[in-house]
Amino acid sequence: MSFRHKHIIALRDLSKDDIEQLLNTAESMREINNREIKKVPTLRGKTIINLFYESSTRTRTSFEIAGKRLSADTVNIAPSNSSATKGETLADTALNLLAMKPDIIVMRHAVSGSHYFLAEKVNCSIINAGDGAHEHPSQGLLDMLTIKDKFGRLDGLKVAIVGDITHSRVARSNIQGLTKLGSSIFLAGPPTMIPPGVERLGNVTVCATMKEAIQDADVVMMLRIQQERQGKTLMPNAREYSRYFGLNPQNLQYARPDAMVMHPGPINRGVEMSSYVVDGSQSHILKQVENGVAVRMAMLYHVCGGTAVE
């Protein structure tokens, strides 16, 4: 059973087998990250362009390190020093980059679906590092790997996702991936931040209160309030939000005693999570970042051997 996708744009496009294969490969990649010499020659001679139209620390660095550990040449392009500030369109930028013969373009863009547009224009592989409020597949995969590390499975787990679901591509990728592998999703957040019809994505329940969502949960995933994406005021103020939808040691007790706490970062300490929880024993936040490199190595590896089916 071989991975047969040229691009990874959304977990929605991948089958359960594809996702399991990516996670298995990522588990094997971890061994490389624990070596003294953290490099294998697998993607020698391949060129990866990291094209980030939105700011990012974790994801960009993680993709860059992943590429380098596989011996690919990685180049970073940020909007502040690229032609986009001079008015070049995405299509033109892509065609210009393509003239330099990259093998993979890893892109983050504020417009949902821009990767599908790009994939039609270019002949190299496209990996989505986040597109608007659509998907963030590498984050979804690394979250799934972190959960699998702790419980040994994803099937039959109760996963609570709390916060700004509407603007969260992390939530969407996790919902797509986790439901395919048999987890149940429980969402909570201010009604203004819950997209209507989200239950149609699969095994998803929208809860009225945070307590209901995290009751007996195996995993509590907290999301950042995406102020930059919210057009209008969706909540009165951060303090009120924190009171109803912030995770603290008191309401964490509703979850299972061995529940794991996750957050995709960057964290607004004291808003969606109290520092007691962020730095507490149930927090797996840094483990998520660690797994990020292995997951992205797996993604880069598999798209390089994939043939076009999309």
């Binding site: 071989s2 294969q21 490969t25 094997s28 596989l70 797996a298 051997g305 043939t307």
Partner: peptide, 22 residues
């Protein structure tokens, strides 16, 4: 040792599942 990551035919035969080196 798993040698998948060290193969010289990744472009011609596609990616294979990667096993663990222990």
């Amino acid at each position: 040792v798993d040698i998948t990551m060290y193969r010289d035919d990744i472009s011609s035969r596609g990616t294979l599942p990667v096993g663990k080196t222990e």
